[in-house]
């Protein structure tokens, strides 16, 4: 009885995780530009991995396992936003996006202003916040 309940829960977790993978895939296919695809690629993955790890934990039922699964997920939490930010920033700077799809762009105004102010300088493409 108990085993059946756990099996059903596991199946739900696995299905949910797979669904999140599909969400990432469909998002990659259907979204119009790089930055929108980025949303589809990063977020569902995190939830999907959480559900998969939950399924493993449910099936193994041992407490020694919890830390390693947590570490696995925390690594994902730490790395995903950083890589997403790096790719997003590169995409924005190299204009790999469709501006006609933006309803407002407050970063562009700031960049323009900075570029005008530094126009006499040698390199107008350099942004002030470069680290």
């Amino acid at each position: 009885m108990n085993d059946t309940v756990i099996d059903v829960l596991t199946a739900i977790c696995l299905l949910g995780g797979a669904l999140m993978s599909v969400a990432a895939g469909v998002g990659l296919l259907r979204f119009p530009d790089l930055l929108a695809r980025m949303h589809a690629a990063t977020k569902p993955q995190v939830l999907g991995l959480l559900l998969f790890l939950l399924a493993i934990g449910l099936q193994m039922r041992s407490w020694v396992l919890v830390p390693v699964l947590m570490v696995c997920w925390i690594f994902m939490l730490l790395t995903v936003p950083v890589s997403a930010h790096m790719v997003g920033r590169a995409g924005y700077r190299t204009k790999h996006m469709r501006r006609d799809l933006l309803s407002m762009d407050e970063l562009d105004e700031v960049v323009e202003k900075a570029a005008n102010k530094r126009a006499p300088d040698r390199n107008p493409t350099e942004r002030p916040d470069e680290t």
Partner: peptide, 22 residues
Amino acid sequence: SILDRVLAIDVLLATIGGALAV
């Protein structure tokens, strides 16, 4: 663009990871 491809490779890796977890 190459950034799209990198992103897609990331998703592919995550899917492979998901398959390993399953």
